[in-house]
Write a protein that binds this DNA or RNA. Sequence first.
DNA 1: TTGTACGCGTTATCAA
DNA 2: TTGATAACGCGTACAA
Lengths: 333, 333
Amino acid sequence: MATIREIAEKVGVSVGTASFVLNGKADDMRISKKTQTRVLEAAKELGYQPSLSARKLRVKGKEVPVIAILWTLDARTSLISRFLQGIQSKSTYQEGQFELLIQPYENGKLRELHALKTGLRFNGAIIANASDEDMHYLEQANLNLPIVVYQRHSKNYATVLVDSEKTGRDVAKKFIQNGHKQVSIVIPEVSSEAVALRIKGFLEECRVYQIEVDELYGDFSEAGGYAVTKQLLMVSPLPSAIFFLSDYMAIGALSALHEANVKVPKDIQLIGHDNMIATQFTIPTLSTVNLPVEEMAEASVNLLLKILRNAADPHEQLKFSSYILERESSSFE
Amino acid sequence: MATIREIAEKVGVSVGTASFVLNGKADDMRISKKTQTRVLEAAKELGYQPSLSARKLRVKGKEVPVIAILWTLDARTSLISRFLQGIQSKSTYQEGQFELLIQPYENGKLRELHALKTGLRFNGAIIANASDEDMHYLEQANLNLPIVVYQRHSKNYATVLVDSEKTGRDVAKKFIQNGHKQVSIVIPEVSSEAVALRIKGFLEECRVYQIEVDELYGDFSEAGGYAVTKQLLMVSPLPSAIFFLSDYMAIGALSALHEANVKVPKDIQLIGHDNMIATQFTIPTLSTVNLPVEEMAEASVNLLLKILRNAADPHEQLKFSSYILERESSSFE
DNA sequence: TTGTACGCGTTATCAA
DNA sequence: TTGATAACGCGTACAA
């Protein structure tokens, strides 16, 4: 991490000269070739790395806010592409009004992310996939950094979310409406408020209508859904409907059921969650709950930008709505 | 974009005081409550936004290189999650040795991305999905910014890629070996060297063995593959094998074929490309070409970091290999 | 609480 | 023709 001054000193030249050489303006400034090569060599030797900070500071009117997306290092990483797509599809991005930083963190270890406290890396953050512990830390830390929390409730920060409890109830209602008496819910092993609320809504509604529910757990992935279903196939009787809290898991289940020659939706009905594009092309097509990830992502960024320029309440709560998309996997033929 | 000095002036207080208040250190410093509120109000009014650059510059030993991932704003955005996963799975990231910036750009308009020339946003870049025009611009611009190009050849920059021509030949060989005489190749409408080379290799090998090939085009998505296949189903005879240059397209095709009651692999064999996880769970499971995205992503970042600290040749060429994963969609029963 | 030196690259002004 | 000097940008931290 040498500075330009160190280079200048080593070569025995002024910092201005060194700067010109390192920026390719040496010829315009008529710096001799020998000096140029000597400067460049010194830079290489010392491992010179220009400081963006110093540059930005000097070049006026160029600094834009840095927005960080804090994303957990777990299976849900696969959803980040939709999040990014939501941000990018909009004009805001194109105009270069902000820089987008991806800041991964380990689930449950948000407190160890020093950048949240130092305020050196970003001007504001969107926190996705926060676990209970992470959220607890956040609420108690009371950071004075502008923050938008995605898919969780919060007292101290702005939020963007859907009514996950209602989602759960809606799916239960659909199952009840379709006449199911014995259903299962497959739960991914991730700590998430949204998941917990969906479960809560689903179970409550089932209780009200006295439907029997089995709770199953698996990895948040196709493989997880496949494994859970394989296990389920070994016991009997099979439930007549399953709610998967992740489309990926439901896709894995379709594969396992096909192998076992169990027909969907005739023998068993499935509903997934998230409305991943792939669900339109599975065999059979997969009913799912539409989660407006792209819209929420865009809203999160816009909200954060507004908060940054004091144009929005830092406690704003944006609510989106989800709805069931009925496709073949939950329809009677 | 007010500065801390403007706030201090407005309130009639020193910059030091303003700094303390804005950083929540006011109480420790025994700044009066009135002063605190006045400073905070002024900050709000003026729309104060702390300059990260000034902060980083002052706080010693904290500046780490910023690496940008330049990603096109097109359908292939869906692949970015694998790219990110590749980076994140490794220790490098955890140690906070660099910051990761996502810099989208419009396909073919890399030249309009000013950040590449100003050097204000990042210390080095990984360029993914560059089109021919983008690459032409890059080669001729001869930027002195450290750059790693992903999945393209380059004279002037470091690269990380697989031998895409060989991939194409391999798939053709597999088809020939399986006895096909009439095949199709489905090409996504994206400008990519890798895609072009796969096509080239595939067509050449087919020519050598005098296999008839039909070239079809569609959107890089499940819907694109579905649409192409629907069209294909209207003509006859159907080819006995199809090579899809994207798994997403192949997944769409499976759906269309299922609807038309054409059996895979009995009536027609399919091979996709990329080895997306979903291909293990389609019905039938999808043969595909494994593209080591995660490994290449990790290698790209590590190579760039090495170049940044002069520990690697800025023209290094890293080659990875791909191979066919035979699953049900291309196997005889 | 205040004043001010400091970090580091850029660039305009000055000097030989 | 070749290079030096110093002001500048902005938040931080320490001495006063």
